[in-house]
Design a binder for these strands. Structure first.
Lengths: 271, 271
DNA sequence: CGTTTGCTTGACAGCATTCAACGTTGGTGG
DNA sequence: CCACCAACGTTGAATGCTGTCAAGCAAACG
């Protein structure tokens, strides 16, 4: 049984300082003319380390990981971190910002396959064929840590903890995907949206944000694509939730008024 | 872009001897009283090695893998290889037979997340939490190779080829799942069933079976669950395909009469 | 040979989509 | 500062695909 009928990024620790900083925050030295990409914020001192690849690593292992994650990359809102077909060389850890991934069919339909926030990994799809199998698009100005994949493989042959953690992350993605299939295959619109909101707030809460108020980073159309619904249906369902007192909706500002009510929606076969 | 709008198990080699055998086929020696589980069919001599975990391994590496995959397990039709919540210790490679995996929500709905045939791996979902996150049910009498996971981790720290192959398999599962999401999120019933049939025949063909005739191992209900449709819709769509000359359908015996027609269905936005 | 399970087909209903119009927001440039 | 535009969001009405319910048939099993 799935605990929540929806993929949960299972993290035990919360960290309250994951909000975005501009890189200039850390730019107080003479190196300021240097390309920001080479600024290092070591995994060992990153406030996301309990949500990200380093989970469970010891201090010495962490320092090795630090040397691996040497560069960061900023991606502006609307830009792609990678596209389908791009050669696969690295996986990426979201440091700040928000992404969507999407796959496209030949006839032009596309499907949002996930939304990624701080601490989550992007690019695992590329290992399969050495080319990326989806597009990763920033939904706001974002920063990612670049993790060269071949070096990650090398290092995870040395450290079984890192190896295991990486495997867990891939496995978790598979489990998440299966949860989305359940959602797409068997839920009605209201259930889908309720599950989506609960999942989002749960992940935001794990990052130190409120569990009851959130600002959506994606459009109704993107939510619809993820949930297998049209944007009008998403909009209507938001309105319905508001009428029923479950939510307060002001465009992208959402306040959850009745979390239990949302959960009941997800867990009821026939309402 | 996805090549086929549907998850493809991308295998280059075909092998024509993957049909089911009862284990008694190999039981001609004095060891017959021995539990069949301990019979070893080394990966190095397995006719599935080009479709399974050993892809791309050298002979010496293969012999190490042989010592890892020491036991096999038979699962009778209808029985579970593992259940949701079972402790995770091994992944399994299907040797003969056919499986489905499914996840269940608290309210009793379930969703078939995949069908697995010879050479495909089962149990990768378990790495995430050390417990299996789905049920794996045999759709016919089947045999799997048991691959103890901790030993697989150990060995893949020694051999980067094995490590990489394992990662590829996990990544491929992620890519496959994303293809299913696309299917569930944006296709209509006919497109779903067409994509499903094309995917099945493609995988069967890679295993030496006909590309145009197949025997379904699953019920209409199981197909429906996988495709996010009700069994009646699956049945009606089969009938429609038959009327249109795309298929010949006799219960579970399917003959594809117009593969191009099926492919056109999958690739057309609006018919 | 009867019972169970699975499959097919029909009639009807309902939920989500489609099409359309209008409202809101945020950015840009006059 | 305000007007304008483009992108995004909301809402209504009608259509249609798929689900639901029901009945009958076929195949498999003991």
């Amino acid at each position: 049984m799935l605990n929540s009928t929806f993929p949960i990024t299972d993290v035990s620790a919360a960290d309250s300082t994951a909000r975005s900083h501009t890189h200039s925050d850390q730019c107080g030295t003479s190196a300021c003319s240097m390309k920001y990409d080479t600024f290092k914020v070591a995994c060992s001192s990153c406030n996301l380390r309990e949500l990200c690849l380093p989970v469970g690593l010891s201090a010495p292992q962490l320092s090795h990981l630090d040397s691996l994650v040497a560069t960061r990359k900023t991606v502006k809102r609307g830009d792609a971190l990678f596209h389908t077909g791009d050669p696969f060389r690295s996986v990426y850890a979201v440091r700040t910002g928000f992404f969507k991934t999407r796959v496209s069919s030949e006839d032009g339909r596309d499907q949002v396959t996930g939304f990624q926030m701080a601490g989550e990994l992007l690019g695992l799809d590329g290992i399969s064929t050495d080319r990326h199998a989806c597009d990763a698009i920033a939904l706001e100005d974002s920063q990612v840590c670049v993790i060269p994949y071949s070096q990650l493989e090398d290092l995870s042959r040395e450290f079984s903890d890192l190896q295991h953690q990486f495997h867990k992350i891939m496995s978790r993605e598979i489990v998440r995907d299966h949860g989305v299939m359940l959602l797409l295959g068997s839920m009605r619109a209201e259930e889908r949206l309720a599950a989506f909101l609960l999942n989002l707030t749960q992940r935001l809460h794990a990052r130190g944000f409120s569990a009851s108020a959130l600002v959506l980073r994606m459009t109704r159309e993107e939510i619809g694509s993820y949930l297998g619904l049209k944007l009008e249906t998403v909009s209507r369902t938001f309105s319905k939730f508001q009428e029923e007192g479950l939510l307060e909706v002001k465009q992208r500002d959402i306040r959850i008024m009745d979390e239990a009510g949302l959960k009941a929606l997800v867990n009821s076969v026939r309402c």
